[in-house]
Amino acid sequence: MPDSRSGGGDEERVIFRQYLDAVGLHGLAGAEAAGLQSSEWYALSLITQEGSLTSGELATRTGLTTGATTRLIDRLERAGYARRTPDPTDRRRVRVEPVPDALARVEEVVGPARRRLGEVLAHYTPDQRALIFDYFTRAAPAFRAATEEIRAAAPRRRTRGTG
């Protein structure tokens, strides 16, 4: 978030906060429209980006316990979004991969955002878009690192619906 060290004033902080809130709200609405919990929506995004992940990799990336991750994978399978497949390099391991036919449903859900953001980006020059995507490239790992800091500092709480 912009702060006094980066030259960001109160107005910039408010604008940035509104942006983050809108992105978060869209993620929640997307999960709901797909019939998923937010953790399942995020896990499906990870699986789709990577092509497949082991349950351990998925647990690490989501911050869930292995038991919660197993239940999450069970729910993704029941919903028809993912499936377990044998790991081709280690038959003792199982990988979780997206079900290609089900991803059309996800595309329907994210279609309006893609269209609207495409319209927004069309107003920028190629150089400006390069700067925006440079920010995304740098900001995503910064947010992931901040997430890890939050998780490390916060006491582990067990609440319903976290996995």
Rank of each mutant, 00 (worst) to 15 (best):
Q18E: 14
G163T: 01
S38H: 10
G67N: 10
P126F: 04
F136R: 09
R83F: 10
T48A: 13
T159K: 13
R144D: 12
R93W: 00
G163H: 01
A122V: 04
F143M: 10
M1N: 01
Q49D: 14
S55Y: 11
G9K: 00
R115W: 06
P100M: 00
A68C: 12
A152W: 09
E50G: 05
R13Y: 04
R5F: 10
R157T: 08
L64N: 13
T85D: 06
A59P: 14
R156C: 05
R129P: 04
A31R: 01
T162F: 10
R160C: 06
V23P: 03
P86E: 11
A139Y: 14
T137N: 12
R151H: 09
D3C: 08
G27I: 04
A82N: 00
R105A: 15
R116Y: 02
T70P: 02
P126C: 03
L44D: 02
V23T: 05
R157M: 12
H123R: 11
D90S: 10
G163W: 01
D10V: 15
L117A: 04
F16N: 01
Q37S: 15
L76N: 06
R115V: 06
M1R: 03
F143R: 06
S52K: 05
G163M: 02
G8S: 04
R83I: 14
E32G: 05
I150T: 12
D21W: 10
T85E: 09
G118M: 00
P126A: 03
A130M: 02
G9I: 00
E11R: 11
A59I: 09
A113K: 13
Y135I: 15
A102D: 01
P126M: 01
D10I: 15
A152C: 07
P100C: 00
S6A: 12
G56Y: 13
L53N: 04
T54H: 08
T70Y: 06
R116Q: 06
A153G: 14
L36G: 00
T54W: 10
F16G: 01
Y124H: 11
R158G: 12
G163I: 03
D10A: 15
V99D: 04
A140I: 01
A31S: 03
L131P: 05
A140S: 01
S55D: 12
R95G: 06
T54N: 05
G24L: 11
R5G: 02
D10G: 15
L131R: 13
Q18S: 12
V110C: 02
V96D: 03
A29K: 13
A104F: 07
E149Y: 14
P88L: 09
G27D: 12
